[in-house]
Design a protein around this nucleic acid. Structure first.
Length: 574
RNA sequence: GCCAGGGUAGCUCAGUGGUAGAGCAGGGGACUCAUAAGCCCUUGGUCGGGAGUUCAACUCUCCCCCCUGGCACCA
């Protein structure tokens, strides 16, 4: 059995969750559910990023202690993911005490490490003199500013600061990173994102400041590091490490999820040995380890937005190399969800409240829209018009309606017991016979294409393949006309075959789309009288079995996906 | 300026040499099991512009224009 460790970016708690946050979590949840459905041991991590000057200021402005403030905002994220049926295994917060200890251990390791290129210390102290925008929590150069010398994003004049910082010598990890991306072409996906990152690395990486002096709301550097006077960890090392600290790193138990697939050569047992054999007696990495050997690749999968790809594809693996931790298997970069052509930002963030949409129209409707209408990895577009049209067409009219009409007919003509008849040759009409053949052909194709598309993270194509089957099934229904054959006792075999085929299409659709729409697919499962849950259907049971299913009493016909009236949306959002 | 990807029906997009496709939207029709859904038929495009290769180009080559993303630079 293989294992799968999936993470999302952790969200900065400086505002309410918006549709962009929701998209990433829904995408991760669907991928995680797909793995669980296949029987893989799966661990899904998400959470919130809670340190920083900006948070401290926002808390002060709200008249609250920072911890109380982040507790409150963090809860809104937890609540949002609950509403959206995002079923994570852990919701991690960077204010967790375990995280603080882990970050400090990371700094001890960085402090001991040397770069693969020149053997110089990976961590060094230097003074920085320049401009700093408090809004961005970032350092600025003159060229980053607009004509008036203001930060273009926050429209404020950056402060001139002079301070001593610790720097991570990222500039000397370029060769190691390029070597790794070359040896592991899947490390950064989609391909064009890898190309971008490789270009960034080739054009030269700059060392990054990893600490700030005299800040309150952050993790203090460990005492052992000399010359530390009130330094706290700065942004990225703090945020990125959550992927490890949430698993218990630096304790060994982290390897359960971070390291290899069970049962594979070099699986967890071997991997653990392999990873720790370079440690000295104090559990520190050997200084020369980083970059000197083939980096061990783990089974960790990071899902992130395109805005933070360089931190995950360059800084993060470089820090792991320095700390002597095996690298994640893949970073998958997804796009943004635009609203009427504009990026969702803080100012636009309130335009679409994912929680409100999910509560009003169903989490599965929103999940389906995001996963089906956005080609995975690319940017997408949300508008209420598109949402309503897409959901009505695909879910209400095609999928839901097929379920309603089929189950109703089974109740009407077979007393609610799914028919066992299977006689494809019984159809007098060639059109009906061909229609059935088209249904079976589409299902056979989808049985191959849907799992492949799920595996390759083309979720929209996985769903499209299922909808092809649903469309063939609706066509077949109109050709076979079960409402006519139902009135003629001599056409009983034909009627039974028709409904049996349609029920099988619905069963397959419930299984194949469950990771995207768990709640509604489970409702359909009940309607079909199937035992258990589509969550657990895999292998042969997830393949087409036309004419080979035992009769079962069906549940009552119900409306799975109500049609949405655009007017409702308008009144709800105005 | 450099790198990558695009510009095909009102909208979103598929289509790597042989007389232009899908879905949605629009129009018409037959039916009625069903969520007035579904089904059948249908309007609609000088395939960004120009030149070239070829018997033949949306598809190959060159030039230009525009868009998106990334990087760099100037102010």
């Amino acid at each position: 059995m293989s294992t799968f460790y999936i993470t999302t970016a952790i969200d900065y708690v400086n505002g309410q969750p918006h549709l962009g946050h929701a998209y990433e979590k829904v995408l991760a949840d669907a991928i995680a559910r797909r793995h669980r459905q296949q029987g893989h041991a799966t661990y899904f991590l998400t959470g919130t990023d809670e340190h920083g000057q900006k948070i401290a200021r926002a808390a002060a402005a709200a008249g609250k202690a920072p911890q109380a403030f982040v507790d409150e905002i963090s809860k809104t994220f937890v609540n949002a993911w609950q509403v959206l049926d995002v079923k994570y295994d852990q919701f991690f917060r960077t204010t967790d005490r375990r995280h603080e200890l882990a970050v400090q251990e990371l700094f001890r390791r960085l402090n001991d490490a040397t770069t693969p290129k020149t053997g110089r210390p990976a961590l060094y102290q230097d003074s920085y003199e320049g401009l700093y925008c408090e809004g961005c929590e970032g350092f600025k150069t003159e060229k980053d500013l607009d004509e008036q010398g203001l930060c273009p994003e926050h429209k404020v004049k950056p402060k001139e600061i002079k301070e001593s910082n610790f720097f991570f010598r990222l500039s000397e990890y370029d060769e190691a990173l390029l070597k790794h991306t070359e040896a592991h072409p899947d490390f950064i996906q989609p391909d064009y994102r890898r190309t971008e990152v490789v270009n960034v690395i080739k054009s030269g990486l700059r060392d990054v400041a990893v600490s700030r002096p005299n800040l309150e709301w952050g993790i203090p550097l460990p005492d052992e590091i000399e010359g530390v006077g009130g330094h706290v960890v700065y942004v990225w090392p703090d945020a990125l490490l959550n992927y490890l600290s949430a698993l218990g790193w630096p304790e060994r138990k982290y390897s359960l999820w971070w390291l290899a697939k069970q049962g594979e050569a070099g699986g967890p047992g071997a991997a653990r040995q392999d990873e720790f054999q370079h440690l000295d007696g104090q559990g520190r990495p050997g200084a020369a380890w980083a970059g000197t050997r083939e980096a061990y690749v783990t089974n960790a999968f990071h899902l992130i937005g395109k805005d933070i790809s360089r931190f995950h594809c360059a800084l993060w693996p470089a820090m792991l190399l320095a700390a002597g931790v095996p690298l994640p298997r893949q970073v998958f970069v997804h796009g943004f969800v635009n609203f009427r052509g504009e990026r969702l930002s803080k100012s636009l963030g309130n335009v679409v409240d994912p929680v409100q949409v999910a509560q009003q129209f169903g989490a599965d409707a929103l999940r389906f829209f995001l996963l089906d209408s956005i080609p995975t990895g690319r940017d997408g577009e949300f508008s209420y018009e598109q949402f309503v049209e897409h959901v009505n067409t695909h879910l209400a009219n095609k999928f839901g309606n097929l379920a309603s009409r089929t189950v109703t007919l089974v109740h009407k003509y077979f007393g609610g017991l799914s028919p066992a008849e299977w006689a494809p040759e019984a159809f007098a009409e060639p059109a009906a016979r061909e229609g059935l053949a088209a249904v079976i052909a589409a299902a056979t194709t989808a049985a191959v294409e849907t799992p492949r598309a799920w595996d390759e993270l083309r979720l929209n194509e996985a769903l499209d393949a299922v909808w092809t089957v649903i469309e063939r099934a609706n066509e077949f229904t109109d050709r076979a006309k079960p409402w006519e054959s139902g009135k003629d006792p001599e056409r009983r075999a034909e009627l039974g075959t028709t409904l049996s085929a349609l029920l099988e299409v619905l069963r397959l659709a419930a299984v194949w789309t469950w990771p995207a729409m768990p709640t509604r697919c489970e409702a359909l499962w009940t309607m079909l009288g199937q035992p258990g849950s589509p969550a657990d259907v895999r292998g042969e049971d997830a393949m087409p079995r036309f004419g080979a299913l035992p009769p079962r009493p069906l549940g009552p016909s119900q409306i799975l996906f109500p049609r949405i009236d655009l007017k409702q949306v308008v009144s709800a959002t105005s």
